[in-house]
Design a protein around this nucleic acid. Structure first.
Lengths: 145, 145
DNA sequence: CTTAATGCAAACCGTTTGCATAGAT
DNA sequence: ATCTATGCAAACGGTTTGCATTAAG
């Protein structure tokens, strides 16, 4: 019930090799949040050459089908993560690009409250904290110039 | 003391007509958060034809000088707002594009706490709530389909 | 067999850049 | 007079699209 082919079928998408491979990559890179080019290169390394056009199309379709999420950090290229059950926001290392997920109920409810006060009906939100991850903090002391 | 020429001088930028006009537009559009193309068109309407290249360069320089802020909503083009003293986040209407600002201390401190727990040293963050503004909610009842 | 997916390359679109000219100090 | 800003148009980079080919159901 967890197989990629099954998910594709349930989403009404034909089960094709590119789609399977791309979802595999995203699943294995779950913590990595890959972008289209990274997916392309990872597939190449495995001997699967899939055109970028196909990668973009598959990603867009899978996003619309709810199988994956598209993340837009700053002005960078879009990143993708496998859809998981629970909503979460992101911490992004400004140096190495590492992405961490977090969820905070207090923030979530404050957001609703703020929106309600402004008369807005919130459909979604994006919250990204940019900074240095623990590893990069060591390598880049505060007195860096 | 509040004049645009003075601000430019203080920022170490030459006082040129394009820079003055662009900052004027942004100041008058304070609530509007214009993007480069909108600025171009607004200037045209006033009879000032300033090339987009210049607009982008001026916006970038003024951003670096701290006179304005660059906002990146979703995957849209960048928007700009005049720099104000205080940090704030944004509510964006998904239909009409209206932008509202808000600030919430609870969220701000939670963010620091979350980052700290993950070992991250946060330099900045972006938080945008997308939904329907009061006006658009009326025009788009929930049963819309 | 029919209809949709893929690959390629060209198009797109917001943004940036090189270079000659115009302008600020 | 010097040095930077501007305008133009071409380049750029990520993403999308048209069309012929290939593959899934």
């Amino acid at each position: 019930m967890n197989g990629i082919p099954e998910k594709l079928k349930q989403a009404g998408l034909k089960v094709t090799l590119p789609r399977i491979r791309i979802l595999e990559i995203l699943g294995q890179n779950a913590g990595q949040h890959a972008n289209a080019e990274e997916i392309y290169r990872l597939l190449l390394q495995r001997g699967e050459e899939i055109g970028v056009a196909t990668i973009y199309r598959v990603l867009t379709q899978c996003e619309q089908a709810g199988l994956i999420h598209r993340l837009q950090f700053e002005n960078d290229r879009a990143m993708f993560e496998p859809a998981c059950d629970s909503h979460h926001d992101h911490l992004v290392c400004a140096r190495c690009g590492q992405v961490e997920e977090f969820y905070d109920e207090v923030i979530e409810s404050r957001q609703q409250e703020i929106a309600g006060r402004a008369g807005f009906d919130i459909a979604e939100h994006s919250m990204v904290l940019y900074g240095l991850c623990p590893r990069c903090r060591q390598q880049a002391p505060k007195g860096d110039g």
